[in-house]
Design a protein around this nucleic acid. Sequence first.
DNA 1: TAATCGATCTTTTTT
DNA 2: AGATCGATTA
Length: 775
Amino acid sequence: MTDGGLPPYLEVLNAEQRRAVLHTGKPLLILAGAGSGKTRVITTKIAWLIREKGLAPQSILAVTFTNKAAREMAQRARMIDERAADAMLRTFHSFGAWFLRRNGKFAGLDSGFVIYDDDDMISLLGTIMKGEPKMEVKRTAYNISRAKDYFLAPDDPALAMIDGSKRFRTLYAGYEEKLAATGNVDFGDLIKKPVEILRAEPVVAQRFRERFSVIMVDEYQDANVAQFALLKELCGENTYVCVVGDDDQSIYRFRGAEVKNILQFPDKFSGTDIIRLESNYRSTSPILKTASSVVDHNRGRLGKTLRAERGTGMQPVLAFLPDQDEEVNFAAELIGNSVKAKNKQSRWSDWAVLYRTNAQSLGFETEFLRRGIPYKVIGSLKFYEREEIKDALALLSFLVNPRDEVAFRRVVNKPARGLGAVTVDRLIEAGAERGSSLLETAKTEMEGLSAKAKKGIAAFIKVMEDGKALLEKPPEANGTNGKNGKSAAAKKKSRGAKDADALVSGEGLSVCVTQMIKDSGIAEYHLVQDEIMGNQRINNLQELVNAASLYAGTAEGLLEFLEHIELDRSLEDSSLAGKTPQDGDTAAAEDKVTLITFHNTKGLEFRKVIMTGLEQGVFPREDKKDDELEEERRLFYVGATRAMDELYLSSCAMRRMYGRTLPVDPSVFLREVETSCLRIVGKAPRGFGAARQSQAWAGGSGKNAAYGGNGGAAETGGWRRGQRLFHDDYGYGAVAEVRGSDEGPVVRAQFETGREVRFLADHQGAAYVKISDDA
DNA sequence: TAATCGATCTTTTTT
DNA sequence: AGATCGATTA
């Protein structure tokens, strides 16, 4: 490789990258820092294996964690060699689904299963935990998910690490039983079940080990225990394994990701070679220093030194702002001025606004809309979580799998068909007893029901059978190329014309989808809702119909459609994004500011990044400590290293939380960051910069007091320690502490209910009534 | 049985 | 501010 005869696509790599691409034989762990060209290495390696090593593309498996990453990888590999299109590039979950469609029978699974999302999981669990508070059900569902991430069965002693109680084991086992009865799987099963099958069926395992001679895993630091087990099972004697990751970017611990996987990879795969990619080509050095100086506070890292190949650049800016409205203005001004500047150096799409929680996007959306700043919100649009969409999908899921209890419960009595909870429960119980599908059960069990219920269930059955008939005999294939779907729908209701106009079917599967939504009455139900509430539900349903038109109008097409929706929900919000009214620019459709959570930025890069909400309680969240605080630090690192040229950090003195505006402290990360490389603007809070007391924060025990000095002698607005007070919401209480701040006295009060409240005497004091002791 | 009102509580990240 | 739970009413 040192001679001059390298092909151009290898020539562009640096020495470390090239070493990683050309490495063969032993297992390989690539520790790739942010912006070190890791995707380039993987894609180049795929192409190289095909071109130079003559490997069959089908024998290469590359696994990622997001669909976006999988798509990008496929595209970039194909740019080097078109044959890469035949390599298997999938997310872990999509690989698991693919595996189970073919081999699920070894685990008693029919190939027509549907994938339950978290909500479906909660619904199903809710039927076991009847009458318990929803939070409890959610917590249990969460724990079951974690258990599956750790590959733990209900009877595994190690379940203690999550919840070892008898109660939890019973619920987990009960849930598994019920899930099996529906014939469906949840997200965790997509990993767990393939592992079980591979372990139990040597013939199947052998087949896969022979099929894939190369397996690569991207973002390996986010792999959980079950995913590691899957990798291990897929690797045979001669499989070449290569994993790429960065322990500093592990941010999915809450979902079972185990940094241990990457730390211990060399132990689990003996003879592992390690290659480090430490040249950062993305960010300027001050940006890199900002990011590193924070994550340096973490213990238990593999440790690496990133070199900024781009050299120095603009100093990152740290802005202290009064409140979140000012933060929104700050971002809007910054972006607007930069884009509208004479030299035209900046486009909207150069910019990204980062926040910790999706809820924080709202303020930016509102203001950007007002100012005509085009933007797109990544990830927050929960299109598939909308009620009307879930209704429609439940209809379709039930059509695919008539044992789907969750879907059945959702739509059998929607709109109201006179089937109460009691009736529905009875039907499901009867179905379970004789092990037949809920559709069959409904048919045969009708006699015992009231006239009203009988009529209702008959209508529901009809919807399903008509839908099924349409899939088996699509109108196109029939030769009767009439108005799609109308034939069946039109006669049903006299008012049918209303929703028939509102929903228009197109090609392929959309014919069936439209008919089901209309016939079931779901369309009309939501049309009425739209009229009452002024919603966009019919439009949303139309969007679902449009998406369906890309799939074949057959049972297989429907299954594909559902699987695609279940596994890739990354529809980007395009409807709400603002348009610049002045210049009717049509070409620049994608030139928009990105609004995005820190988590969602992983793998992305932007020229200019604004990290917002750097306050205690927001980022990091207040309840984070130890390991979890370290994960928040990594999140900071991920966010900051997205920036190529410019980085801005904003921190507010006050923030609206819990529907109330409260003073907040700057993020602990702002005390850890190497401030010498920052430019501070705005009113820095007291104690910041000069006498920094980072030790007090690191200690964690001392509640606050590290901040804000001691304005005790100053004005207290008449508040003093021990003063009793009353508040409409909180009831009676007493003042625990009064201290100064730039916004005037801050009162901390303890209420009888146990609630502790902090408020600014000058701004919010009016809501609190002082009570005299002698009254 | 369904809808509605009011009180109470909790606010993350996602394949 | 929004979701959720429970009780009360049509």
